[in-house]
């Protein structure tokens, strides 16, 4: 039968069913500090592609309430990644209570910093690093922008560290906050990081946005102002539910673009990025 686990991350509650015990056991360990909801917003299923594939070269199909028809299965050892992808998919395709921005976010002094950009731009690593350097980690993947309050609502799921991000965080946190290293996934090596105790405890505390950044990792240090019209266009591209929200999405996004200053920053190393962020943060009180 199905192994079941229920998890709440910020405002969203998930019910995960798995044909195998292993992925659920891995999730239970890493999500131990998160609340267990009774009612769930979404169902995620980890199933064998064919009945016999449960034992023979087991591979995990990701499915659930919302699915992509052509999602390729993952090997069972990457079941943790499969569960995370399944939860992301439900949010990306189903969530309607906030404007969903594909972005990392962190909070300091009661205000939120939002970081967005292409995959591999380093926003996940940067959000995780901030979370270990005096900021409260809000999210590494989805920033939830309130339709009425205009605030950034946390979605502090596990941070999905990739490649060089893994080493950067291994030096800073204990192994009990890290998942197993998943080698050779479609995105390279992956290791999951449990957000800080504080980030999880305060997952229902939103913060008004003060600054949005477009970080780019591996380039010579530079800062460029992003005008509101360009910000608007880039954020419509970074949102999976802007169109679905209709006029409410338009109102929330135009308000955000009008009131939140935006900068594109380039940096070579994580340390340099943190420095740039501190410098800019001080400019916008």
């Amino acid at each position: 039968m199905m192994h079941e686990l229920r998890i709440r991350v910020g405002p969203a509650a998930f019910r995960i069913g798995s044909a195998w015990r292993a992925p659920v056991a891995a999730l239970e360990r890493l999500y131990a500090a998160y609340p267990t909801p009774s009612y769930c917003d979404y169902t995620v299923r980890l199933e064998p592609a064919r009945p016999w594939r449960r034992w023979l070269r087991p591979s995990v199909m990701i499915s659930g309430d919302y699915m992509l028809p052509d999602a390729a299965p993952l090997p069972l050892v990457q079941g943790l990644l499969a569960a995370e992808m399944g939860m992301n998919l439900q949010m990306a395709l189903g969530w309607r209570r906030h404007l969903l921005l594909h972005a990392g976010a962190a909070e300091k002094d009661g205000r939120a910093l939002v970081m967005t950009g292409m995959s591999g731009s380093g926003k996940s690593t940067m959000a995780a690093l901030l979370g270990e350097s005096g900021w409260r980690f809000l999210s590494d993947e989805f920033a939830l922008l309130g339709l009425e309050d205009g605030a950034v609502h946390p979605f502090p799921r596990l941070v999905s560290l990739k490649n060089e991000g893994i080493e950067a965080l291994e030096q800073r946190v204990g192994h009990q906050r890290l998942g197993p290293r998943l080698r050779g996934t479609p995105k390279g090596d992956i290791r999951h990081l449990v957000p800080s105790h504080d980030a999880i405890q305060r997952m229902d505390e939103a913060a008004l946005p003060r600054l949005i950044l477009f970080p780019r990792f591996g380039e010579a240090r530079a800062i460029r102002t992003v005008p509101p019209s360009e910000l608007f266009m880039r954020l419509t591209q970074a949102s999976t539910n802007y169109v679905a929200l209709g006029e409410a999405g338009f109102a929330a996004l135009t308000r955000f673009c009008e009131t939140v200053p935006a900068r594109a920053i380039d940096y070579r190393r994580g340390e340099e990025g943190l420095e740039l962020i501190d410098q800019l943060w001080a400019q916008f009180p």
């Binding site: 005008p227 019209s229 608007f232 419509t236 169109v243 006029e247 338009f250 135009t254 009008e258």
Partner: peptide, 21 residues
């Protein structure tokens, strides 16, 4: 719904649900 934003004007068209710049 009109919304000027620096050099452009955003228009949200209620009936189609489309945003035009």
């Amino acid at each position: 719904v009109w919304h000027p934003l620096d050099a452009v004007t955003l228009v949200y068209h209620r009936r189609s649900g489309q945003t035009h710049i």
